[in-house]
């Protein structure tokens, strides 16, 4: 069993949770829309519960803080993604 003190600080603390609201994203069925939003370009910033789909550049949102190893789905382009940490940043990678 891994000693919790050996884990990175982000993994030791409980995950933040998020209430998702509509973002105006309209490319998936209504009940899934709050889980996605459009990328607003260079000045945009991802929240701790968000990841950018590398295939279609839509922002994927979760009700909980995302961490390395999490798996999420991009419904607009039908991709299955895994979060990996690269150079201190959380990146979404497609898993086929």
């Amino acid at each position: 069993m891994t000693d919790p003190l050996e884990l990175p600080a982000s993994a030791r603390r409980p995950r933040q949770t998020f209430e998702l609201e509509e973002t105006g994203f309209n490319e998936v069925p209504k009940r899934f829309r709050r889980f996605y939003r459009r990328w607003r370009g260079a000045g945009d910033k991802l929240g701790p519960n968000e990841a950018l789909c590398p295939v279609c550049k839509v922002v994927i949102r979760s009700t909980k803080e995302l961490r390395a190893g999490d798996r999420v789905y991009c419904m607009p382009c039908m991709s299955r993604l895994e979060l990996v940490e690269e150079e201190g940043m959380l990146i979404a990678k497609v898993i086929y």
């Binding site: 490319e27 295939v55 279609c56 991009c74 382009c77 039908m78 991709s79 086929y96």
Partner: peptide
């Protein structure tokens, strides 16, 4: 463009598998 997201995503994922 909204339609094309599905088409290219289908292609990449099908071919990837």
């Amino acid at each position: 463009v909204s339609d094309e997201r599905r088409h290219m995503g289908f292609g990449e994922n099908d071919l990837g598998r």
